[in-house]
């Protein structure tokens, strides 16, 4: 251990607290790479300590308090790391669904992108790929990405453009969405644009 004052598991606590803060404030914090790395380093140190202790204890009787202590610390660290990452993936998945499964839209946002670790981006891509694969079987009958909180009542919907999004190709031709104007369109065509905040239902 580098610092005298620190106990085993201090770093892991910090990590968990960060996750908790993120949940409470409902914001995505930057992936804390340095902290994760130092915890992993601590794990290795603990591992060496265990091996050393066990090596010294030649007459192993089954109860070695020191080794037990180290092992508990290792297990706790592991749980904290897992909790942190599970929290991260949950958040990412939530974000993914919040924009209606539009991954490019999510990743194009530099703010969000800066907060993600490279392997998190990979995770999102793969997650997206598996979703698409899953959907492809019954995409004609059911759109599982559709919102369930507000079931659609109409095939068509009157929308108003709140952010310029240019010409959009739909199944029935292209529509040039201009800021501030209203369009009567097929709901299925522009559902994702509503979710992404380009259009607003009137």
């Amino acid at each position: 251990m580098s610092s005298e004052a620190r106990q085993f598991g201090d770093l892991a606590t910090q990590l968990v607290q960060e996750a908790r803060r993120s949940t409470l404030t409902d914001t995505l914090l930057k992936y804390n790479d340095t902290l994760v790395r130092s915890i992993v380093r601590e794990q290795r140190q603990l591992d060496t300590l265990i091996t050393q202790t066990l090596a010294q204890d030649v007459t192993f009787t089954g109860s070695n308090p020191a080794a037990l202590l180290y092992q508990t610390a290792i297990q706790r660290n592991k749980r904290c790391l897992l909790a942190y990452h599970s929290h991260r993936t949950d958040r990412l998945r939530d974000m993914y669904w919040a924009v209606g499964g539009a991954l490019p839209h999510l990743l194009a946002n530099t703010d969000i992108r800066a907060k993600l670790a490279p392997h998190e981006v990979d995770y999102l891509r793969e997650y997206n790929a598996s979703i698409i694969e899953f959907r492809s079987d019954f995409t004609a009958e059911l759109d599982i990405a559709a919102s369930i909180t507000h079931p659609p009542k109409d095939l068509h919907v009157l929308v108003r453009v709140v952010r310029d999004c240019g010409a959009i190709q739909t199944e029935v031709g292209s529509i040039d969405f201009r800021y501030g104007q209203r369009y009567m369109v097929r709901r299925a065509d522009i559902e994702h644009l509503i979710v992404q905040g380009y259009l607003q239902e009137v």
Partner: peptide
């Protein structure tokens, strides 16, 4: 007119 068009599934735009 918008109402009538809506009944007939005509996509339209009012300017």
């Amino acid at each position: 007119l918008a109402e009538l068009f809506k009944h007939d599934d005509v996509m339209h735009r009012i300017v």
